[in-house]
Nucleic acid binder design. Structure first.
Lengths: 164, 164
DNA sequence: GAGGGATATATGTTGCAACAGATATTTCGG
DNA sequence: CCGAAATATCTGTTGCAACATATATCCCTC
């Protein structure tokens, strides 16, 4: 069950050895966001290394699997979790590793259709369960309601205005 | 006051055009974290560009100002918000820009004392207020209680075990 | 059916992130 | 005091991130 932590002097300020608490709560949230992401993401980098891909490449492969049919480079870009310039080169790396293939669309020759190869699909399959375990190792010490609250708040945080 | 958002199909899953909601709430939180950080951090990158430094370099400069006296490279590394290998080179870049200076400690010749230059201090001063404004633009659409909740939850998220 | 704008991908370049490993200096045990 | 371990910084290398800009193709209007 969730205990109240009685620390008046904010958690992050203490971690950083700061002598006074944050002036702006907005800044405190941003830095907490940065620090938490940094830690969790570092684990991810380590996790993916043995598989020879990066978290971002994994994201792209997973989009390909989700569609089950060829996807354009542009569509991949739209569905990536994090902002991603330079999609063409990211895809090229996947192709170079033989995890994906690409070919020009004949109807619209601007478009490149990208597909998962069997090798790519096999790699994803190998990753699925260990990755689920990592996610849980990282965050399952939070209660279900806390996890949901966190998702909701993070969603809200990136909506600049609900009143245009 | 905090409203309940009635969206059953999760916000992020919808944003990414996913057809089914997330299986693991832990994964949903992680990806929300990644996406929110990615967006806010991109604004930061843009913000700092005209000043000729990166957010990470700013963090280091701010640590120097916070102490008001020389700080070792190692200490800077310990107090950075995000994990930071390769501190020596980061400091060298600050020195190259004449925003900081470094000199060997005479008592312990392993240590390099790093100090803020007047130029560095002036740069920080120029950045202070605009940055506060950016922080508020990014997040002040959240209510004060939401901001505090978010900070608390993000702190909790990075503590693997409170029960050792 | 020619031209202008929109769309989709590719490429040149710079600088930094990240890891591995090397070096220099101190500290501590015996 | 000698050597081993710990500490603090440095260096080599690889690959990717990020931006700017270029190219190719399509679409729409007149």
């Amino acid at each position: 069950m969730p205990e109240k932590t009685p620390t008046k002097t904010s958690g992050l300020a203490a971690e950083l050895g700061m002598q006074s608490p944050f002036r702006l709560p907005e800044r405190e949230v941003f830095l907490n966001l940065a620090r938490t992401f940094s830690e969790l993401n570092h684990d991810m980098d380590q996790f993916f290394k043995p598989y020879g891909i990066t978290p971002v490449q994994y994201n792209a492969l997973r989009i390909l699997r989700g569609h089950g049919k060829p996807v354009s480079v542009y569509q991949i870009g739209e569905q990536m979790v994090t902002r991603q310039p330079d999609l063409p080169r990211l895809v090229d790396r996947l192709v170079a590793m033989e995890l994906a293939t690409k070919r020009r669309c004949q109807n619209d020759r601007r478009v490149m259709w990208v597909s998962l190869t069997p090798k790519g699909r096999a790699l994803l399959k190998k990753i699925d369960k260990p990755l689920d375990r990592l996610h849980q190792d990282q965050l399952s010490h939070l209660a279900p309601e806390q996890l949901q609250q966190l998702s909701v708040l993070l969603c809200l945080a990136r909506k600049p205005g609900t009143d245009p």
